[in-house]
Write a protein that binds this DNA or RNA. Sequence first.
DNA 1: ACCTGAACACCGTTCAAGT
DNA 2: ACCTGAACACCGTTCAAGT
Lengths: 200, 200
Amino acid sequence: MGRRNEHTREELREIALRAAEDLVASQGLTGLSTRKIVTRIGYTVGSLYMVFRSLDDLIIQMNERTLDALHRQLLRATADSPPPTAAIRALAQAYIDFALTQTNRWLAVYQHRLPEGESIPDSFTERVTRMFELVQRQLALLCPRRSSDEIALASRALWSGVHGICILGFDQKLEVAGGHSLQDVAGSMLDHYLSGFTQA
Amino acid sequence: MGRRNEHTREELREIALRAAEDLVASQGLTGLSTRKIVTRIGYTVGSLYMVFRSLDDLIIQMNERTLDALHRQLLRATADSPPPTAAIRALAQAYIDFALTQTNRWLAVYQHRLPEGESIPDSFTERVTRMFELVQRQLALLCPRRSSDEIALASRALWSGVHGICILGFDQKLEVAGGHSLQDVAGSMLDHYLSGFTQA
DNA sequence: ACCTGAACACCGTTCAAGT
DNA sequence: ACCTGAACACCGTTCAAGT
C-alpha cells in the first residue's frame, strides 16, 4: 500500500483539523479520537502522525484556530469603533455569543490539558494575550491617566470575570437559583467594575 | 474466586474514592482510570461497578467531596465573623489558596464533563449553590437596602469573576505579559466591583 | 516519500462463573 | 451476595513493510 499523494501535507493537515472540528462541535472534546478523524477523511491512523506529533498537538492546533475565529468575532464586534465603554460591552457580548453558538469548540479550548511535563506552545499563548489586549486598549482609552500597569491588571480582572461567568454558566449553575441570563450577570460585572474603576 | 467481604460496600466506596483522589492529586484527572484505582485498593475492575454506576459517577462523587473540602475551607476563612468586605476578601483568598494547594483536585471539578445526554445530580448542584450563598450573605450585610435579586446577581458576578481568574491563572496566562499574581488580579476585581456596587 | 495495517499497551464496561 | 477475570469494543502510538 501507501503512496497515494492525493493531498499535500498541508492539505492533509487542513482536512484533519476540519474533521476534528466537526467531531468536537457535534460530540464534544471527549468524542474526539484519532481513529474517528482518519475514518472521516479516508486515511488510516498512522498517517496522522506524519502531520501531527500527537493527538494533543492536533488538539492544540485546532484550539488555536478556534481562538482565531473568536478573535475575528471580537474584532467584528468593535469594527464601528464605538466609545470605550460601549466597545467593552460589545466585546463581552461577542464573547458570550461565541460561547453560546460554538459551545463545544469554545469549551474544548479550556477543557484540554497537556500531560504533566509538556508546556503550551507560544503560538497558543500569543493568541490569548491578543484577546486581552483588545480589552486593554479600550480601558486605556477610557482611563488615559491610569498607568499601563493598572490598565493591564484591570483588563485581566475584567476579562477573567466575563470568562468565569461563561464557564460557570455552561458548567451547571448561575441560572440555578438565579433566573438570570449570562448577559445579566456579565452586565452586572461590567457596570459595577467599570464604575468602580473609573471613579477610584 | 469471589466472596472476600473484607470491606462493607461503604468501606469499598470510601477506599475507592480515596485512591481516586490520590491519583488525581498526583497525575491529574487524565491520569485516572478504573484499572489504576482497583490496582491500588487490591480489587479487580468488576468490583467497582458494585458501588459506582460508572467512572463518571465515581468522578462526580469525588468532585462532591472536593467541593465539601473547599466549603469547609471557606467557612474556616470567615470563622471569626469579620465585617462584610473583609469577609468577601477572605473568601476569595481562601478560594485562591485552595486552588493553589489542591490544584489537580480543584481542576478536576471543572474539567470533568458528562456525556451529551446525562445531567449533573442535584447533590452536586446544591454544593455549588452553597458556595455562592456564602458570598451572597456577606453582600446582603454590606448592602442591606439592595433587593435580594440584585444581591443574587452580584454574588454570581463576583464569584464567577474570582473563579475565572483562578481558572485562567492555571490554564496558562495572566502571569504572562502581566507579572501580576492571582491575588493582585483578584484584588483588582474585588476592589473595583465592590466600590462600584456599593456606590451605585 | 507516502501510507498502510498489524501490533502493543492501554482504556471502560459487562457478565458468566466461582465461592 | 460478593468478587473475579475473561471478553468486548474501544483508545493513542509505533513501525516494519509495501508502493
